[in-house]
């Protein structure tokens, strides 16, 4: 860990002022990923700006029936918040599928979005990695890539985004509120994370001088028909090989609205509107789910060790959609898959 300076931000404007003054500074809130990476010498900020005193801890209803979540709300508080449990159980479930109880107590809502990849090479400074050292090469493409991406990869990077919460946020079409030197703006969740392309060092479209202030959930929460299913190498406390967030609106025996997002397969939570469109208007049954899965995975590309993810993702999509359709969402503490 390098010898960074430390300062506290008094309010959002102060935070933005401080980060603008120091190109190599970083915000810190929960710290669960940043301090981890600093100990591996992967992140080396010259200054940490402590934003934990900013007034961004509210979970409140919005005028148009949604919910606005302050960026500093801890993951566990969000998962267990009555508004979230009642109206966005998909989000609650996804949060509880991630990390451990301790880390969920520490990690912030905004920070969860900014988690960096768990690609083995990104974490190891002894190996080349384009995300860590642009231009050094990607070790994973021809290396150990069992956990890497199958969708949206590039020649430069096949890393995945590790968050569970973000998969649900993508499905729910949340909006990210940010503040910067030129004021506030909103970013659609689908536009927040990036694909690696030839700039894998950039995970998101957040500008370097911006701060996340809130996540806004639209009114529609899919509380009736949803499920978050996470497949991993042990039954808890492991990153997803594949995870699926499914949210359906079913009316009169037909799917009126469908959302499908995948984790563990791409550099960002993966959504495919065409796949979702195949579900819309259909009777919820496995053949339709399979069609949607095939559409979503049509461009999937496997590498030496992760090709299994394509078929696994297909099966997981079908299963999760069935769980959602049957209103039998996966319960994270119960390991039998429903």
């Amino acid at each position: 860990m390098n010898n960074f300076a430390y300062s506290r931000a008094a309010d959002v404007a102060d935070a933005v002022r401080q980060i603008a003054a120091d190109r190599n500074a970083k915000f810190i809130a929960g710290g669960t990923n940043l301090i981890d990476l600093m100990k591996y010498d992967v992140e080396r900020p010259v200054r940490l700006i402590d934003i934990t005193r900013l007034p961004l801890r509210a979970v409140e209803e919005t005028r148009d029936g949604g919910v606005r979540v302050g960026a500093l709300v801890p993951n566990s508080d969000l998962a267990y918040h009555p508004l979230i449990e009642a109206r966005y159980p998909l989000l609650a479930s996804a949060i509880l599928a991630g990390a451990s109880a301790q880390l969920r107590n520490m990690a912030s809502t905004g920070g969860n979005l900014l988690q960096r990849t768990r690609c083995l090479y990104f974490y190891d400074t002894a190996t080349p990695c384009n995300k860590r050292e642009p231009g050094s090469g990607c070790s994973a493409i021809n290396g150990i890539n069992r956990t890497n991406a199958i969708l949206g990869t590039s020649e430069a990077c096949i890393a995945t985004h590790p968050s569970d919460m973000c998969v649900a946020l993508a499905a729910l079409e949340a909006t990210v509120h940010v503040a910067g030197p030129s004021g506030e703006r909103c970013i659609d969740f689908a536009d927040f994370h990036r694909l690696p392309g030839d700039t894998p060092d950039r995970d998101t479209n957040l500008e370097s001088q911006e701060i996340i202030t809130a996540i806004e959930l639209p009114a529609k929460g899919f509380a009736e028909n949803h499920s978050y299913l996470k497949i991993r190498d042990r039954l808890s406390y492991a990153f997803a090989l594949v995870s699926v967030a499914a949210a359906l609106e079913i009316n009169g025996g037909r799917i009126r609205d469908a959302r499908l997002a995948l984790g563990g397969v791409a550099h960002k939570p993966w959504r495919d509107r065409e796949a979702e469109a195949l579900l819309q208007g259909a009777v919820p049954e496995r053949t339709v789910f399979a069609k949607a899965a095939d559409r979503l995975l049509r461009d999937a590309k496997g590498y030496a060790h992760n090709a299994f993810k394509i078929d696994l993702a297909r099966r997981a999509i079908i299963r999760t959609l069935a769980q959602a359709a049957n209103a039998t969402p996966q319960i994270q503490s119960v390991k039998k898959i429903r």
Binding site: R118, L120, Y123, A126, T127, D233, R234, S236
Partner: peptide, 21 residues
């Protein structure tokens, strides 16, 4: 990774041991 001769999951998150669940 035999290209490097290095254990790549040299930690206790990616080297999996059983957890309580």
């Amino acid at each position: 990774d035999h290209a490097f001769g290095r254990v790549m999951n040299a930690n206790i998150a990616e080297y999996h041991v059983p957890v309580n669940a």
